[in-house]
Simulated scan of single mutants.
Amino acid sequence: MRFSAPRVALCALVLAVAAVTPAAAFSPKVTVRYTFDGPSPLADATGRGYDLSPVSRYGGTFTTVAHNGGRALAFPPPCHTEPCPRIALRAVATDLNPGRRPIRYGAAVRLAADETTKGENVLQKGYSASGSQYKLQIDGLAGRPSCVFVDDRRPQIHTAIAATGVADNRWHTLECRRAGPHLTILVDGTPRGQTVLPADLSVTNHLPFSIGGKGSFADNDQFQGVLDEVWVEIG
């Protein structure tokens, strides 16, 4: 089979670009990452400026603890008598709206058996009751992590729940992964639960990205353990 000169030239150009372009150039972009290290523990480690700001009430605060050669954040311990200390860390970041695109996000967590509640938020953007949302949470006495998605237009909550709990006072890595119609929860790198999402499900809202809780108000789903290496990748 013979090709015209312009076609041959185009093929040569494509091959040349492929030869000099590193594979890393096509890797998902790290949109935001928080390592909680250094002199500014709430700084966005990617340098994009999505630094966190605390919102708190009733003395809610965090402390830093040693972890893996760096630092991690410890949130308020369990409280059973109101008013309880509450705190969330927020960043205004509209770029963290994935729309319909693939998205991965996660964190390293340490949670003891006596630190579980009916619901603790690790990270989220948006609210399920108003607008859209993606979220990573740890629920129930067994401390089972799950991933949540809610569409811009439809209020149905889609949840991928892990078959195993993580409330054993050990460090675990958690990841939520949306790829095509599938939403998967991974625990320590292994898929532990999955659900199917509508192909057109979209998450786009103007609400802040939050870590450790919805906010500082009552019923804020306060996280009560230790967090490290919080990250989001879109695309």
Rank of each mutant, 00 (worst) to 15 (best):
125 K>C: 06
157 I>C: 05
192 R>K: 14
225 G>Q: 01
37 D>H: 01
4 S>C: 04
85 P>T: 04
217 F>A: 04
130 S>A: 15
151 D>T: 12
146 S>D: 14
105 Y>V: 02
221 D>V: 05
63 T>Q: 05
72 A>M: 04
89 L>N: 03
88 A>K: 07
45 A>L: 00
92 V>A: 02
172 H>S: 08
207 L>D: 12
142 A>D: 11
27 S>G: 00
128 S>F: 08
47 G>C: 07
42 L>E: 03
234 I>W: 03
180 G>M: 11
110 R>D: 01
163 A>I: 04
53 S>I: 05
20 V>T: 12
34 Y>G: 02
206 H>T: 12
56 S>T: 10
168 D>N: 14
200 D>T: 15
148 V>M: 10
216 S>K: 01
221 D>H: 10
157 I>R: 15
148 V>P: 04
84 C>F: 06
66 A>I: 09
135 K>N: 11
111 L>I: 11
28 P>D: 02
217 F>P: 00
164 T>C: 02
15 L>C: 15
78 P>M: 13
181 P>Y: 11
143 G>F: 00
108 A>C: 03
224 Q>H: 12
201 L>Y: 07
144 R>W: 06
145 P>Y: 04
2 R>K: 09
91 A>P: 00
4 S>G: 14
37 D>K: 02
63 T>Y: 03
78 P>Y: 05
88 A>D: 08
151 D>P: 06
49 G>C: 07
117 T>D: 14
233 E>I: 06
120 E>S: 13
178 R>P: 07
183 L>H: 09
179 A>C: 10
195 T>A: 10
32 V>M: 06
184 T>I: 15
229 E>R: 05
40 S>M: 03
162 A>T: 04
180 G>F: 11
156 Q>R: 15
1 M>T: 07
38 G>Y: 06
119 G>K: 11
202 S>G: 05
175 E>L: 14
230 V>W: 02
193 G>K: 08
104 R>L: 09
84 C>P: 10
185 I>G: 01
93 A>S: 08
204 T>N: 12
133 Q>N: 13
118 K>A: 14
92 V>M: 01
151 D>K: 13
173 T>P: 02
163 A>C: 04
163 A>T: 15
96 L>Q: 03
170 R>D: 08
46 T>M: 06
40 S>E: 10
128 S>T: 06
194 Q>F: 05
90 R>L: 14
91 A>T: 10
3 F>H: 07
205 N>C: 09
83 P>G: 13
180 G>K: 13
80 H>D: 14
70 G>T: 03
66 A>P: 09
197 L>S: 12
222 Q>R: 12
47 G>S: 07
21 T>V: 09
44 D>G: 05
99 G>L: 12
179 A>H: 14
183 L>V: 09
7 R>P: 00
126 G>H: 10
15 L>D: 04
35 T>G: 03
196 V>K: 13
108 A>I: 06
190 T>Y: 03
41 P>Y: 04
147 C>G: 13
35 T>Y: 04
230 V>H: 01
122 V>Q: 09
9 A>Y: 08
73 L>R: 08
60 G>R: 08
37 D>W: 00
105 Y>E: 04
7 R>D: 12
125 K>W: 09
138 I>Q: 02
107 A>Q: 05
212 G>W: 04
144 R>M: 03
140 G>T: 08
189 G>A: 11
83 P>N: 13
43 A>E: 03
52 L>N: 06
95 D>E: 13
233 E>W: 00
136 L>D: 06
113 A>S: 15
51 D>Y: 01
187 V>L: 06
82 E>A: 15
149 F>Q: 13
232 V>L: 11
